[in-house]
Design a protein around this nucleic acid. Structure first.
Length: 406
RNA sequence: GGGAGGAUUCCCGAGUGGCUAAAGGGGGCAGACUGUAAAUCUGUUAGCUACGCUUUCGGUGGUUCGAAUCCACCUCCUCCCA
């Protein structure tokens, strides 16, 4: 009989555990409350959070009780772990707004109905603490000497660490204690960068309550080259369709590097291990098929089946048939522009394909602009109504960016 | 509190009176090769009504024919000593 721990291990989620045997035993019976914290530092979850949501979902499926902790209190301080610079301080209003955005996104993967999972906000218990009481009650149990040797502060000890951020670990530890007392929360999970913070909480529970609780970290989603995944030149890949369109989201996974595909499949989809093992034997061009599957599965989980189908169809239309697509982004011209024509550069600027005309001129001179699949050679070319084919025209920039003019 | 140094184009980082829209690297974009991949190679990377013009080197003011470069003040940052 395979346990949830085995599943997580097999799929490659687990990075570190505090006590593997004890955790295995603990998780073998359903109903274990565990928590994962999410600091609302942006108005949408991103791919980095997605792995955590997947773990929650896996755990919930076998009957454990996820507690999603929104860091309304800790976000006021800012986690220095692994950060090279201090974060910008955020206002309470923004933090609250962000926390609300997180809620709905989490619900797509974790079932919060009928008490099957909880969502709490540490602002509820952190923000009204009395400073001196807190120091005497909690602060006394933390050794500065030990904290300073923690891996998560290492980088910051060289570049500078404010006292504000130094307290983050203590606050997170207090969260664990609070959740243990209130919900009998036995485990904290988190990204591997949270290891020191998690240990802090476990120590605190042991000291205050004389009980053993456990920690488990999962691997951060990185490429085979060790770079963090989920970042593009435009910033993070968001789960919010308004910030990263489902199509861009789909395309991000569609373009995964060969060596990373299997790993992503295991971590980001629910595709069975039997099937994944089959995929592992694929080579060269055949890997492309796996990428299609990966993109579809991940998009489906985040944006739903309907949206995933649409992305798939659009990608096929664009890349495999070279044809049109109804869901392509578009710009409509006014009657006057249609009548008098408009410069290609002006048109592309209007369509948001280029940030400036200089950039557009360069693109055209380098042969990177196509109108209805014909290279545009002259930067001064005018776009006229003669360019419409069945009342629309398609501009392509480079290989992958399509835009429709109507 | 005392002392030293720094702030340069998307990022890192040269430049210390005209040759500087500013080296080099990273990143981005485009082209070649491909599998909508990676790696590699090539070009390009402030804006414009473009052989010219305008804006840019933390902010403000000044010196000069001419300033990213010199001076004054201001803001912010880092380091060392206490």
């Amino acid at each position: 009989m395979q346990t949830i721990f085995d599943t997580l291990k097999e799929r490659g989620y687990i990075a570190q555990t505090t006590d593997e045997e004890a955790i295995k035993k603990l998780l073998s019976k359903p109903g274990v409350a565990f928590y994962i914290g999410f600091d609302p530092t942006a108005d949408s979850l991103h791919v980095g959070h997605f792995v955590a949501l997947m773990v929650m979902s896996h755990m919930q499926k076998v009957g454990h009780m996820p507690i999603a902790l929104l860091g309304g209190g800790t976000a006021m301080v800012g986690d220095p772990s692994g950060k090279t610079d201090m974060r910008k301080m955020m206002t309470k209003e923004i933090i609250n707004y962000n926390a609300n955005c997180f809620k709905s996104q989490m619900s797509t993967l974790v079932d919060f109905s009928q008490g099957k999972a909880l969502m709490v906000n540490n602002g509820d218990w952190l923000l009204n603490l009395n400073y001196v009481d807190f120091l005497r009650d909690i602060g006394a149990h933390f050794s500065v000497n030990r904290m300073l040797s923690a891996e998560c502060f290492k980088q910051r000890l060289e570049k500078g660490l404010s006292f504000l951020e130094f307290n983050y670990m203590i606050m997170q530890g207090y969260d664990f204690l609070h959740l243990f007392k209130k919900y009998n929360c036995m485990m904290q999970l988190g990204g591997d960068d949270q290891w020191s913070n998690i240990l802090g909480g476990i120590d605190l529970v042991r000291k205050k309550e004389a009980k053993e609780v456990y920690g488990l970290t999962f691997k951060l989603l990185t490429t085979s080259e060790g770079k963090k995944m989920g970042k593009t030149e435009k910033g993070a890949v968001w789960l919010d369709p308004a910030k990263t369109s489902p199509f861009d989201f789909y395309q991000y996974w569609r373009n995964t590097n060969d060596p990373d595909v299997i790993n992503c499949m295991k971590l980001l989809t629910f595709v069975s291990m039997d099937e994944i093992r089959e995929f592992e034997t694929y080579k060269d061009e055949k890997i492309n098929e796996v990428k299609k599957r990966l993109a579809y599965e991940v998009t489906q989980i985040v944006h739903g089946q309907e949206e995933a189908n649409r992305c798939l169809a659009q990608a096929q239309a664009l890349f495999e048939q070279g044809g049109k697509s109804d869901t392509m982004s578009f710009t409509s011209l006014s009657d006057e522009e249609k009548e008098n024509g408009i410069g290609m550069l002006d048109l592309m600027l209007k369509a948001g394909l280029i940030p400036s005309k200089g950039e557009g001129r360069r693109l055209i001179l380098q042969g990177g602009v196509y109108l209805n699949d014909v290279v545009v050679a002259d930067p001064a070319r005018q776009f006229t109504k003669a360019d419409f084919i069945e009342s629309e025209a398609i501009i392509r920039k480079g290989k992958k960016v399509y835009h429709k003019i109507i």
